[in-house]
């Protein structure tokens, strides 16, 4: 379960660059919910993910994961509950380290790291099998430096790393936006498969309305730091892009003209 209670965040307060990024966001997610998040540029989609991940302290509000209040925890401590995949494929992996080393680090997310060997033989076998399921041929390249992989391969690896130790919450922040359409489709399918397999509670930000409709059991739309639309169940299953556009027009009012282009 995830609860966001009246979250507020203003960047650069009291300056000319003041920006109200989150303006009282409330959200309740059940375990196993797969929620897609859409909205125009600057609507607060990525900001809400960063707030949950704990990149900076909130101005107001509380974040509760499975009954535990994590509002006061710093980023690395929250990582015990949260798996993340970023927009930039370079960001989620350590390029100068080997594939298996990256996986070994991810496997120990939320655990104490001591002077035990960093990667065991049994782990290696396990990683080999897991990589094989990606179908990218990475299972024979365990000791390859990650920086030699393509963007799509790195994103698939990051996804594996984020879910290697089953997280209570998975955050996908436009994780296919930097990939070419074919690779993006593959990574998206893979994400969907992993989320379904482990019944992971997931928040996925996307620019693509079709993807937002096709994946997940619930869709929320953000606008000016608020959630303005929340569709789930049968209503979500029957959703189409024009209907969504229409709903957005009703909910956001006059700003439709400028945001229509961004949401296509």
């Amino acid at each position: 379960m995830l609860d966001l209670i009246n979250i507020r965040k203003t960047f650069n307060p009291h300056t000319i660059n003041e920006k109200v990024a989150l303006n009282g966001v409330n959200l309740h997610m059940e375990s196993g919910d797969f929620v897609t998040v859409i909205g125009g540029n600057g609507a607060g989609k990525s900001t809400i993910l960063n707030a949950i991940a704990g990149l900076w302290p909130l101005d107001e509000g509380r974040i509760v994961i499975d009954g535990q209040d994590v509002t006061g925890l710093c980023e690395y401590k929250r990582a015990a509950f949260i798996g993340r995949v970023f927009q930039d494929p370079m960001m989620g992996t350590a390029g100068n380290m080997q594939i298996e080393e990256n996986l070994a680090i991810a496997k120990r997310r939320g655990q104490k790291r001591g002077l035990c060997i960093g990667i065991t033989k049994e782990e290696r076998q396990q990683y080999k099998e897991m990589l094989a399921t990606l179908g990218l041929g990475l299972e024979d390249r365990l000791t390859t430096k990650v920086k030699l992989l393509s963007g799509g391969q790195r994103q698939a690896l990051t996804l594996l790393m984020a879910t290697l130790t089953k997280p209570k919450l998975l955050l996908l922040d436009e994780h296919t936006a930097a990939l070419d359409p074919r690779t993006a489709g593959k990574v998206l399918e893979l994400s969907n498969r992993i989320v379904k397999e482990h019944r992971l509670m997931t928040l996925m930000v996307t620019h693509n309305m079709k993807d937002a409709i096709a994946y997940g059991n619930r869709l929320i739309m953000m606008h000016q730091g608020r959630i303005i639309l929340d569709i789930s169940g049968d209503e979500k299953r029957c959703l189409t892009v024009p209907v969504l556009m229409n709903e957005f027009a009703k909910a956001s009012g006059d700003e439709l003209a400028t945001d229509r282009a961004l949401l296509s």
Binding site: A53, E75, Y76, K77, A79, A80, R84, F86, M90, M91, G92, T93, A94, G95, N96, M97, E101, A104, I105, A106, R108, R109, G110, Q111, R113, G114, L115, C116, I117, G118, I119, M161, A162
Partner: peptide, 27 residues
């Protein structure tokens, strides 16, 4: 040492701080 769990987290910190934090490493 740099092959241990702790040593690996030091290397990850130097290589990609963002990734290290996301993997729960106290950078």
């Amino acid at each position: 040492f740099f092959g241990t769990e702790l040593g690996s987290s030091l290397r990850a910190t130097g290589c990609n701080e963002q990734m290290a934090k996301a993997q729960g490493i106290n950078v």
